[in-house]
């Protein structure tokens, strides 16, 4: 059980959130080649340590945001307050 800091509502229990995975920017559709698309769709870094990841306050304000979480300790290191981070 964790507490996730929603940039809009403040810290709330994990159960109110939905996980969106590691932040991987969507490629520009046209210039991107197969390798770029393949990496975007299927390759994740799966670090033991800090990871930049997406969350959505699905049972709250519905805000998507990114935060940096240490996957080994669950410590949340950084929560950008900017609204759109992709």
């Amino acid at each position: 059980m964790e507490r996730i800091p929603c940039p809009h509502c403040g810290p709330r229990p994990l159960a109110e959130f939905s996980y969106g995975g590691e932040v991987v920017p969507r490629p520009d559709p046209e210039p991107a080649d197969d390798a770029t698309w393949g990496a975007y769709l299927y390759v994740r870094s799966n670090p033991k340590g800090p990871q930049s990841e997406r969350w959505v306050h699905i049972h709250g304000c519905r805000r998507w945001f990114t935060l940096t979480r240490d996957t080994a300790t669950h410590r949340i290191l950084d929560t950008p307050l900017r609204k759109e981070e992709a």
């Binding site: 969106g20 969507r26 959505v56 699905i58 998507w64 759109e84 992709a86």
Partner: peptide
């Protein structure tokens, strides 16, 4: 709905 919110907020703000 979740996906559409993600696209709206994250991909094409």
């Amino acid at each position: 709905y979740r996906h559409m919110e993600f696209c709206r907020q994250g991909l094409w703000p």
